[in-house]
Design a protein around this nucleic acid. Structure first.
Length: 113
DNA sequence: GTGGTGACGACAC
DNA sequence: GGTGTCGCCACCA
């Protein structure tokens, strides 16, 4: 629980995203208590590039389930990774996003109970 | 210390 | 409903 920095906390949450599930920047931001600062989540993802830790940033999408950051993965890497996990992508957007959506606050709180 | 920037979100038009 | 604008806060130059 090295909550040294904001984006470090983001990594902790992102790494908790289960296989074949996705979440949104806003959800993570809200979990960290800064839903208004969803940009910071994306900024944290930017830092995940050079990290040794394997951050499944491809599972983090924007509020619409759109693969906003696929360009940062390089081409369609992000989409291929999601499809490899059984997630259907259509027009750079996750199908059944509402179903595959993984809310950290909800899921983690359920785990505590 | 100040200013600019950003893988977003919400609201206004 | 699509587009434009503001806000939000951490990080870098």
């Amino acid at each position: 629980m090295t909550k040294q920095n904001f984006f470090n906390s983001v990594f902790e949450v992102v790494k908790l995203i289960p296989y074949g599930r996705v979440t949104s920047y806003g959800a993570i931001a809200a979990y960290l208590g800064a839903k208004s600062s969803s940009r910071m989540v994306g900024w944290a993802m930017n830092a995940s590039h050079g990290l040794e830790e394997k951050i499944p940033a491809h599972r983090v999408l924007n509020r619409n389930g759109l693969l906003t950051g696929k360009m940062h993965f390089g081409g369609n890497t992000m989409q291929e990774l999601l499809e490899k996990e059984g997630i259907e992508i259509e027009n750079d957007q996750v199908k059944n996003f509402k179903t595959l959506f993984w809310d950290p606050e909800k899921e983690l709180m359920k785990d505590f109970n």
